[in-house]
């Protein structure tokens, strides 16, 4: 019987592929957008892409267990979209670096894109564990989900760079206390920037668009 030292990160392979993805994306800016199902990731993209595509070349990589519904919605905005279906990888609940690498391998003329947007599978837990090669992580939370979700799903809110609080148009109709929410966020991640908007009505969508512009131009 022998004891062998290994001391290896189980996520090592994912991290290595994520680094490869970074090199493939190169000068393009890449964001990984995560949220629960229905928080409004795709609607947020629909609301902002029409403006952004005038200034930047954008590629969207969509992640879902099944269907190409989201990629179809993005294409209708006149933006390139590639759909990953995790059912083709065993039906997983998150995207991993390998899925993104295979998607990137299939996307032609990658160097022309200024912005790569990865819309992750709707899930507030697992996507937080998997780096994809992105530059920034964005979490979308909607006012209908409750002000305590950051406390219930701390890892996601700890690793995010920006939080988009969506559906602010519904604030008069839901039990969502903005002050308590902001307090909860401060307890989890003091550095997390919050952008409050409504993807549906377009209220304050400019702040989100501006943030993307700043990021893209900073990387160039």
């Amino acid at each position: 019987m022998a004891e062998i030292n290994i001391f290896e990160n189980i996520m090592k392979k994912n991290e290595e592929i994520a680094e490869q993805n970074k090199k493939i994306i190169n000068n393009g800016f890449c964001i990984n957008i995560m949220s629960s199902p229905g928080a409004g990731k795709t609607t947020l993209l629909e609301a902002s892409l029409k403006n952004l595509k005038k200034k930047f070349n954008i590629a969207v990589i969509e992640g879902d267990v099944s269907t190409s519904n989201d990629a179809v919605r993005i294409k209708k905005c006149g933006v390139f979209a590639y759909q990953i279906k995790t059912e083709n990888y065993g039906g997983g609940c998150h995207l991993d670096a390998n899925m993104i690498k295979q998607a990137l391998d299939k996307i032609k003329n990658k160097s022309k894109y200024d912005l790569f947007i990865i819309e992750n599978v709707g899930n507030l837990i697992c996507p937080a564990d998997f780096n994809l090669g992105e530059d920034k992580k964005v979490v979308v939370l909607s006012t209908t989900e409750g002000e305590d979700k950051p406390l219930k799903y701390p890892l996601m809110f700890q690793i995010a760079d920006v939080l988009v609080l969506n559906k602010i148009d519904l604030l008069p109709y839901v039990n969502f206390n903005l002050k308590n929410f902001e307090k909860n966020i401060k307890r989890i991640n003091n550095k997390l920037k919050i952008i409050k908007l409504s993807a549906k009505t377009g209220k304050n969508i400019d702040e989100w668009i501006k943030q993307l512009e700043i990021w893209i131009n900073e990387k160039k």
């Binding site: 019987m1 022998a2 004891e3 062998i4 030292n5 290994i6 001391f7 290896e8 990160n9 189980i10 996520m11 890892l155 700890q158 401060k186 003091n190």
Partner: peptide
């Protein structure tokens, strides 16, 4: 509140015992 989590996110295979 300027703090950083430094431990608690690891997933490591430390050692194995083999025949």
């Amino acid at each position: 509140m300027n703090i950083e989590v430094i431990q608690g996110r690891e997933m490591i295979i430390q050692t194995i015992e083999m025949e």
